Computed example of a mutant assay.
Amino acid sequence: MADRVHPMPAPPPPSSSPPLEHAAAATETTPLHPSFRGARPPSPGTYIIQIPKDQVLRVPPPDRARRYKKLAARPARRRRLRHACCAAFCAALLLLLLAAAFVGAVYLVFRPRAPSFSVASLSIRGLDALAVSSLTPQIDAAVRADNGANKKTGIDYRGGGEVTVSYAGERLAAGPWPAFHQAPRNVTVFSTALAGGGVSFPEEQRKRLAAEQAAGAVPLTVEAIVPVRLRFGKVLRTWTVDVKTRCEVTVNKLAAAAPPANRGCRVKVRPLWWWW
């Protein structure tokens, strides 16, 4: 079977070219604006500018030059002051951070703790519950100071401390706290003589004191205010701080060698907050 051969399509007719007048019109350009042709040169001649004699062309005027200079220097002065304040604040903050780091390091190394106190014995003389006239009691107090909680911290008890014994808010006698150094893990028992004068009780209080003495349970309060310093090692010491302690005790009689029954002692040291 023979293959079919299709005839070739006829070529398209040639396109007509645009007229010559249209091509010439397309090549024409719009004339330039006069401003693009260059500025006109000034006309030749001499120009004279007249200025009044009383007008001075100066910035600032002479009458305000001093004020202008002062105001112009103010921003620079403020910048210097601001920089000085920032530097002082940064220095103070750095010192505060260094001090806090030093205190923290000392605390972590030495671990300071508050000492504990108790009343070992009381010897009372000149205190009669039935006496109507004023009394002059004499008390010998033995106080036990325990620094066993501190392994590396010593305590310096400074002079000027005071020990007082009172009954129902009435001060009976007072005496000095001796000055001494207490090494770490040390227990010290010391005696101090307390003296009082002009002590008198109202009738109701005398009856109550007599009843408590007959029952063998007379409550007394022993208080002490002692200036102390902490000693860390051999060189480092703290500032002097007042330590306040208050012990509630009970004695069976108001006589010599009255063994006290301690009902607890409280120690208060506010500035040395790291003790707690």
Rank of each mutant, 00 (worst) to 15 (best):
Y157V: 12
Y157G: 03
A131S: 14
A120G: 11
K152A: 12
A149M: 09
S121C: 08
G154A: 09
V132L: 13
P115T: 11
A120P: 00
T136N: 15
A129K: 00
S123C: 02
Y157S: 11
R113Y: 12
P115R: 07
A131H: 11
L135Q: 15
S116F: 04
D156I: 07
S133V: 15
D146S: 06
A120Y: 04
A145W: 03
G126I: 08
I155K: 06
L122G: 07
I139K: 05
A149G: 06
S121H: 13
A145R: 00
A131T: 07
V119S: 06
P112Y: 11
D140T: 04
P137F: 08
A141F: 06
I155A: 09
L130W: 09
N147H: 06
G148W: 01
S118K: 00
A120S: 13
T136E: 12
K151N: 12
Y157D: 06
D156L: 13
D128Y: 04
K151W: 06
D156T: 06
A145E: 13
A149E: 14
I155D: 01
A141N: 02
V143E: 06
N150D: 07
N150E: 03
T136R: 09
I139M: 01
Q138C: 08
L122I: 05
V132N: 12
Y157P: 00
L122F: 10
F117C: 01
T153K: 04
S133D: 14
V132S: 14
K151S: 15
G154R: 04
L122H: 09
S118A: 15
P115K: 15
Q138D: 13
A129Q: 08
A120L: 07
K152G: 06
T153H: 01
A120W: 09
D146N: 13
A145P: 00
N147T: 07
S118L: 05
K152F: 12
A114L: 14
R144D: 09
V143Y: 08
S133T: 13
T136P: 15
D156R: 10
R111G: 08
A120F: 08
S118E: 14
G126Q: 02
D128C: 00
K152V: 01
R113V: 11
D140H: 02
A129E: 02
T153V: 15
A114N: 03
V143G: 08
Y157E: 02
T136S: 12
N147I: 01
A149K: 11
P137N: 05
A142Q: 06
S134F: 08
